[in-house]
Write a protein that binds this DNA or RNA. Structure first.
Lengths: 187, 187
DNA sequence: GTCTATAATAAGATAGAC
DNA sequence: GTCTATCTTATTATAGAC
């Protein structure tokens, strides 16, 4: 892993732990074991480095989600697999947490990757819901787009509740709850 | 409004807009029109002032939510009223956003009010869900606690999706989706 | 490419006048 | 109670040596 890569990886970790506002170039450099010169040689500054880090994180999240949602099985099984996949719940979502960062939201360039990821996720979930409806798994009256937004929101909100409680319990309850609602709507 | 009050109100606004890490004492003082001396006379420092601000915000949120969830009407009507109440969605939840703040989560004292609010909210929602079940509005097989967690998570996650998209649309879809799931599970 | 030195500005808190 | 210095450390970036 070269220096630019180490800088990006350190930034990804720190953005996840402390967000954009809470992450200083100094902290990034210390974690990467690099000096100021390296960072300003490879990137124009903090925001440029953050952009590279965010893009990499978003790309990874998308691959993981797509693999789970495209796996074999019924629609409900695939949604369950996605919602119940192994997560470090109390660390929160590395992309979702950035939506609370004022400097990320104020920058169209930094916000764009988040927008694209969640837009893609909602579309993909809507496809899976629609497949479930055509197989008779879910109530045909449900709006796939709205249901997909609910599933994605349950996940993101589950992280919020879990971090407030310092416990994975509320996250697991929220996931259990939405899966039960989906399953009970199968007519 | 005296100086201590103005400091608390300025802090509440800034915590909502920029979070704890992103809010400096200087910014608070400028917004409140006060000097350093005032702040350190009334509060021991940034975290003490933030604690007062968070407590006030939490108290207000709880009053608002309780009024809506205790209003007349069916369980579904009350949950709908709570989820669809007028909100400045793109500003996010003033309490939920703090769960992404590393310094808030690292401090048991600052995290406690968040924990208490969301714990209370889930319990209150669970009561309303249980009432709905006893009236035949919702499927009696649903777990009230899990369903309540899903409703609260949909709200918090809706903010995340909306801010990523810079649009209230995903929030509204998530709310519509969870209400449709609740209504379709009425057997 | 990477390093250290330097610099201007801000964060967070203290001291002491009034 | 409130104000204006003052202080220490961090932030973000630039300069120039190697």
């Amino acid at each position: 892993m070269d220096t630019a890569d180490r800088l990006i990886e350190s930034t990804r970790e720190l953005l996840w732990e402390r967000g954009y506002v809470g992450t200083s170039p100094k902290a990034i450099l210390q974690r990467a074991g690099a000096g100021q010169g390296s960072m300003y040689h490879h990137f124009s500054g903090k925001s440029d480095l953050a952009l590279a880090a965010v893009r990499r994180t978003v790309e990874q999240m998308r691959m993981t989600a797509d693999a789970l949602l495209s796996a074999p099985g019924t629609a409900l099984e695939r949604i369950t697999g996605y919602l119940r996949r192994e997560r470090d719940v109390l660390r929160g979502c590395p992309v979702g947490r950035l939506t609370m960062d004022p400097d990320i939201i104020a920058s169209p360039e930094l916000r764009a990757p988040l927008d694209e990821l969640f837009d893609w996720l909602r579309r993909r979930l809507a496809e899976v819901v629609a497949e479930g409806q055509s197989r008779g798994e879910f109530n045909a009256a449900l709006d796939p787009a709205a249901t997909a937004a609910t599933i994605a929101a349950t996940l993101q909100g589950g992280y919020v509740l879990a971090r407030a409680a310092d416990s994975v319990r509320p996250f697991e309850q929220a996931v259990t709850g939405v899966l039960a609602l989906l399953a009970s709507a199968n007519h």
